Simulated assay, not measured.
Amino acid sequence: MKEYKVETLIYYSKLTFDKYHIVNSSNKEIQEKLNSYAKEGWRLVSTDASNFGAAMYIYLYFEK
């Protein structure tokens, strides 16, 4: 039977001229999460993102 897990990451926007600052600052952390879960046997099966106010929520869905 498969197991499922959701990891939620939250990033906050800041005043800057760089419209990609969240992407640039989150890449390293997201890659570390993916590597960590992969070592434990989890596989990324889906992603999603939403925003609310100044926050961006990134959802990583894993199965094992």
Rank of each mutant, 00 (worst) to 15 (best):
N51Q: 02
T8K: 13
I58K: 08
A54W: 04
G41E: 11
E32M: 01
L60E: 01
F17N: 07
L34G: 00
Y37S: 13
N27R: 00
T16E: 05
D48R: 01
K5N: 11
G41H: 02
G41A: 06
S36H: 08
V6T: 15
G41D: 12
E40Q: 14
K39G: 03
R43Y: 07
N27G: 04
V23L: 00
A49W: 14
L60V: 04
N51D: 04
V23C: 00
A55L: 10
W42G: 03
S36D: 11
N51M: 01
V23K: 00
G41Q: 06
Y20I: 00
E63H: 04
M1Y: 04
D18Q: 14
S50T: 13
E3P: 05
L34V: 03
A49S: 12
I22V: 14
R43K: 13
K14N: 13
N51W: 05
F17M: 15
E63F: 08
G41N: 09
E29Y: 01
F52V: 13
S25A: 13
V45R: 12
N24W: 02
V6W: 12
Q31G: 14
E29M: 03
A54S: 13
L44Y: 14
K64N: 05
F17W: 13
K39S: 09
S36R: 04
K5F: 12
K5Q: 13
D18G: 06
S13V: 01
F52Y: 04
Y12H: 11
E29R: 05
Y20N: 12
E63C: 13
L9K: 09
V23N: 02
V6P: 02
K39Q: 11
Y12I: 09
M56N: 07
A38D: 10
R43P: 01
E7P: 03
Y57F: 15
Y59A: 05
S25I: 09
I30K: 13
G53A: 12
F17A: 06
A54V: 15
E32R: 08
E29G: 03
S13D: 11
A49M: 11
